[in-house]
Design a protein around this nucleic acid. Structure first.
Lengths: 196, 196
DNA sequence: GTTGATTGTGAACGATCGTTCACGTATGCT
DNA sequence: AGCATACGTGAACGATCGTTCACAATCAAC
């Protein structure tokens, strides 16, 4: 167990460095950071960390930290499974929200929701929606669409005849069946709401 | 305008490199990457990019890429403001969700919601909630609390007499007034829902 | 056409880089 | 005790690093 604890300490130190510098420290820097006095010790440690999945070598052969090290959010299980005490905090995984939510960065963007037409789907005014462009919507996807000049969020439905209808998730709104033009801006891939 | 286009091209190249290597390229690498033949050209370019906010020097003096370069999500304005055509895509900002949502990484974690007691607050079963520990809840905050042995998400309310009550956002549930013990696990800072 | 500012070239510098030696010094097992 | 393994030390290596020269090419303004 002391072995584990030692490694954990090192990892924390590296994580702290990365938070500040957003880069992998050089061996010389790790030397000071981890309390070693020989670069060789660092070299060996990196080998171990590579085995543990904390670091990897990039295509060029240089070190890169993995999400395991750089990621900032600890993902836990279900609420019922119990709540972590600060002591024994057994984490399921560490993830980066960006990586988790965004598949094609160049085609993804966010915008702020206004209006409550999708409120029963849990999309409230002020929420951020993550939209992926250039993806053909499937039935029941939430899309951002331009109908007769106005952009809105709606459920996408296409029946067998190819007839498209856009359904809100709010009883006060009505289903839209585009007459003139229908432009799909993108498919909603995620919703993010931040409090305060 | 050709000037702008040139810089944009360089930025794209650097962004591509970062996606692959997750690190800042060396001058020599940028040399090849950007088509220069002199390191000095690179050196100058970095100065320019620093002015534009694409790169910055870390505390140690080494280069680091800013979110502007590494961030993967383009943030746009309101829906009504119009929708971006791929061409003139005028972006408001580029952000990292991690940075945007997480203030204290070491005290933040996520878990999956089960149960529908907060559904009227737009928190559905299966959603991810981002929780910050060690933060004293204010009225109307959503907290994760342990009442009589079970963990739940609820609105937090404390009246002037110091009496705490936990309110669900679902008519089918009742307000909880803790009798024995009340442990606040943390305050919900954000909700994330991913489709598919 | 001349001038001045911008931008890239090419070579050079000491500093730092990652890697690899051979060699101590613990620690743990039988 | 004795031995083997694991882990850190210290020094050395060539390679690559970022920075800085002086100078050439390009462009715009007048």
């Amino acid at each position: 167990m002391p072995r584990k604890r030692t490694i954990d300490g090192k990892v924390q130190a590296l994580r702290g460095f990365y938070r500040e510098e957003e880069r992998v420290p050089s061996y010389a820097e790790m030397l000071a950071l981890l309390g070693y006095r020989s670069k060789n010790a660092v070299h060996r440690l990196m080998g171990v960390l590579e085995g543990l999945g904390y670091v990897r070598r990039g295509p060029s052969g240089k070190w890169a930290f993995t999400r395991r090290l750089t990621g900032s959010i600890k993902l836990l299980g279900l609420v019922q499974a119990g709540f972590p005490s600060p002591a024994e905090e057994e984490l399921v995984d560490v993830l980066s929200l960006d990586e988790y939510l965004v598949r094609r960065p160049e085609a993804t963007f966010m915008l702020t929701v206004s209006g409550d037409s999708m409120i029963e789907a849990g999309i409230h005014p002020g929420d951020l929606v993550l939209i992926e462009k250039g993806r053909t919507p499937r039935n029941n996807d939430i899309v951002i669409a331009q109908v007769d000049g106005e952009w809105t969020l709606k459920y996408y439905h296409k029946d067998r005849k190819g007839c498209v209808r856009l359904e809100p998730a709010n009883k006060n709104y009505t289903t839209i069946i585009p007459k003139q033009s229908l432009t799909i801006g993108g498919v909603v891939r995620a919703v993010v709401r931040k409090y305060e």
